[in-house]
Amino acid sequence: MNTANSTKHHYAHHFESAEHEYQTSKFGLWLFLCTEILMFGGLFVGYAIFHHKYPELFKAGSHFLDWRLGSLNTVVLLISSFTMALSIYYAQMNDRAKTLINLYITLICGFIFMGVKFFEYSHKIHEGLLPGHLFHYAGEGANAVANLPLYFSFYFCMTGLHGTHVLAGLFLIAWLIVRTHRGEFGPKYYTPLECVGLFWHLIDLIWIYLFPLLYLVG
């Protein structure tokens, strides 16, 4: 309970009330999430078509990924979503210390996710398991199935776009931490927490689909 000196937020003059501003911001963010769904949707539709055409290719490709690392990243992202939701919960409870702790845990989970991704990517790049004509892997199973580079085109495009979103999310969470330290959020005003939270949960949502599609189903 550390909000005695919290800065008071004044809603912008073109809104009728703080609630009007809150709901409008959230509505705008949901519209943004719709465009995100459609952007990722293009990749998912492409994946579905090629998976339908070459099921054996995707099965063979998924064997080059480590499902344990994929599962680890799934668990890490789920926990980060949980702590992100808790940071809003504690802002509603007017508990700045716990809001901060949960934001820090979310940030750390995001970094763990990117760390695992970095490890996976560097391994693939080292082995030559790259998209399209960059592919130069010559080890075990390289010729077991035709068009293996196509699988890695999907792998790098989908996880790359997703990873870019995680990085953007990390910047936004760092920004939230700075503002929480300044005591700008409380039960009466937590719109940025709510909106970044929604964005972060969408990243989690997309990973929930990417994980079985790339690592498991094959």
């Binding site: 999430l33 719709c34 769904i37 459609l38 293009g42 998912f44 539709v45």
Partner: peptide, 16 residues
């Protein structure tokens, strides 16, 4: 909010 969101899901299914 869910209405607007599911409209985008619907159009994704149309594309699919």
């Amino acid at each position: 909010f869910p209405t607007v969101f599911f409209i985008s899901i619907f159009f994704l299914l149309v594309m699919f």
